[in-house]
């Protein structure tokens, strides 16, 4: 009787510790949830800084049913506001009275701070130092080769991301962000998450280019413009230019969310992309493969589609760049 009980206990112990019963990947799941809006109303002040550049300050708040607001602060108050009202995302530039409409993409941080680890990345969880006076867990994300990619501090109580650091392949800090102040549970007025453009404002789709700029680009390059159909939250097409490179002309699309920039270069056919001595690593796209490299301005993604070469530069994680690249049509 005793022997049977001991064997049953041993079997139960083995079952509990076997890999098949190890449960979900906790750090990965915590990162996935960390950038979603918390179930309680949230307010915070976030600073973002890319290496060697000025600090950008955002006032961020969220309310019920996934509404959110991010104000990029300028010298005289909010210079750029992003409002997600549950259906659409409004991007408002008060100084230029311009409004851009995009898709509702609820997230607790600006797009440049978002991060999703790659499948091959190794994650480790430990206790982190307090951020904005709140206890946190620290998740370190390393490549398969052991290279540190990201550090993310996550609030112990509500599970939201409070601080993050992105690293270049050489180990240098690419950019960092952190909440300087956060509060949970304080409900903000519903009007904060509603947006009505004034009659004087010029409203346009955030992917719509200035007609004269686009016409000029087509005339100078002879290329049919191909732009992304998806952009990260807060970004809009700011301008279109042409860059001369030897005998070739390249269309340069510039997207911005006020704090950071994203560039898409559309190259003519019959060219090769030269990535420099460091090269890059392969990244799978739905329509082929791409080369992901790193520059002083953040990650660089180069790929080929229907004989045309494209290059995307900007401070987004690999997942964000991949999604923009796959949407280019």
């Amino acid at each position: 009787m005793m022997l049977a009980a001991s064997m049953a206990a041993a079997l139960a112990w083995m079952a509990a510790w076997s890999p098949a019963h190890a449960g979900p990947d906790i750090p990965r799941e915590r990162i996935r949830r960390a950038f979603q809006l918390p179930p309680v109303p949230f307010e915070g002040e976030l600073s973002f800084q890319a290496a060697g550049e000025k600090v950008s300050l955002f006032m961020i708040s969220s309310g019920p049913r996934g509404v959110y607001r991010r104000d990029l602060m300028g010298p005289e108050g909010a210079a750029r506001s992003v409002v997600g009202d549950g259906e659409r995302e409004w991007i408002f530039d008060g100084t230029r009275r311009r409004v851009w409409i995009g898709t509702h993409q609820p997230a607790i941080v600006p797009a440049a701070a978002l991060f999703q680890p790659q499948t091959s990345d190794q994650l480790s969880l430990s206790t982190g130092s307090p951020v904005a006076g709140r206890p946190s867990s620290l998740i370190e994300v390393r490549s398969r080769e052991g290279q540190l990619r990201q550090r993310i501090w996550i609030d112990e109580e509500h599970g939201v991301a409070l601080r993050g650091e992105a690293f270049a392949p050489d180990g240098g800090l690419g950019w960092s962000w952190r909440f300087k102040r956060v509060s949970f549970g304080r409900r903000r007025a519903a009007e904060s998450f509603e947006f009505r453009p004034s009659s004087a404002a010029i409203v346009s789709d955030r992917l719509q280019a200035d007609d004269s700029q686009q016409r000029q680009a087509v005339e100078r390059t002879g290329l049919q413009p191909r732009k992304p159909k998806w952009l990260p939250s807060g970004y809009y097409l700011e301008s279109v230019g042409v860059m001369a490179h030897g005998r070739k002309s390249i269309i340069h699309y510039r997207f911005s969310d006020g704090a950071t920039m994203l560039s898409l270069f559309q190259c003519p056919p019959r060219v090769r992309l030269k990535f420099g001595p460091k090269g890059g690593r392969r990244l799978r796209l739905s329509n082929g493969s791409a080369t992901l490299s790193w520059s002083e301005s953040g990650p660089v993604l180069g790929w080929s589609d229907l004989g045309f070469k494209f290059v995307l530069v900007g401070r987004l994680d690999a997942e964000g760049l991949r999604r923009v690249a796959e949407s280019v049509q």
């Binding site: 490179h245 030897g246 340069h252 301005s297 530069v313």
Partner: peptide, 17 residues
């Protein structure tokens, strides 16, 4: 096929930024 330097594009991005 002409070789296009990605570094030049990154520089153009940086200068604009």
């Amino acid at each position: 096929r002409e070789e296009l330097s990605v570094e030049l594009m990154v520089r153009a991005h940086h200068e604009y930024e």
